[in-house]
Amino acid sequence: MTLPDRWTFEAIGTRWQIDSFEPIAPEVRASVQLLIDDFDRTWSRFRPDSDVTRMSRTAGRWTLEHADVLLGLYDRLDQVTAGAVNPLVGQALSDLGYDAHYSLRPRATVASVPSWASLRRSGATVSTDEAVLLDVGAAGKGLAVDLVVDALDQAGVQEVMVDAGGDLRHQGPASVKVALEHPGDTTRAIGVVELRVDDALCGSAINRRAWGDGLHHVIDARTGRPTEDVVAVWVLAEGSCMHADGLATAHFFADPEALAEVYPHRFVRVQADGRVLASPDLPGELFL
């Protein structure tokens, strides 16, 4: 199935592509972009005027839109990965070179990562005892996709595929096939999965967002260093791109069975030891 109307734009550090059956009205487009900009102004560590950037300057008490949902998921991911997934990796990522200016040069010393429990939260309000740099890169973009899908749905746009830099949510009437990019060769695929209505698919791999030897964006919060055990993960989840996104990162660190309790999903995981693990009921085909 091909959706005839295509709308592309750049936002929150990635390229968005929204395909729909009917053209999306200008006022609906404007409201979607406003929504994404609001999200960015709360959560982006790459812009100087965001709440997250303010939190990185001083301790305090902050109310962050969607924190109950987004940080609630991080609470679960922190539990099931024994502390490996933790948004407080922001400063370590920045020190490794993935900072707001994309200096891509690691500093001599890299900050240790505070425990996730050191950030206290009640609903959408968080309190900190020191300046901390949050990085919600593991699940934030997925939540943004969900918010866009909800906004479009409320505006009457139901047959739609939202793609935020590869994080997908498919609301179209028919299924679509998506290739899984080979982690070692971007011209090839290791498999194809089929997305049905209301499916979300998120991939995470350490090949593309990498800037040096052993330097990439998937950080083990327990060591403050990029992880090495897994090279690529895809997660397929129904009804929530945020959960698919967050679980894709969690698969770099935790047992599949423990992760199944967070949210029902199917997965493909390419490990550094050469094994590929995948759900037996994956809808699609792996070229193994």
């Binding site: 679509v176 990019e181 695929a189 998120c202 070229f287």
Partner: peptide
Amino acid sequence: IAGEVVGKSLDELDVSKVSGSSLT
């Protein structure tokens, strides 16, 4: 075993999307 996975060329596949690491 991923080391032996050649996969298939994207040109051979009839797909709507490619999912890899997030585009930066």
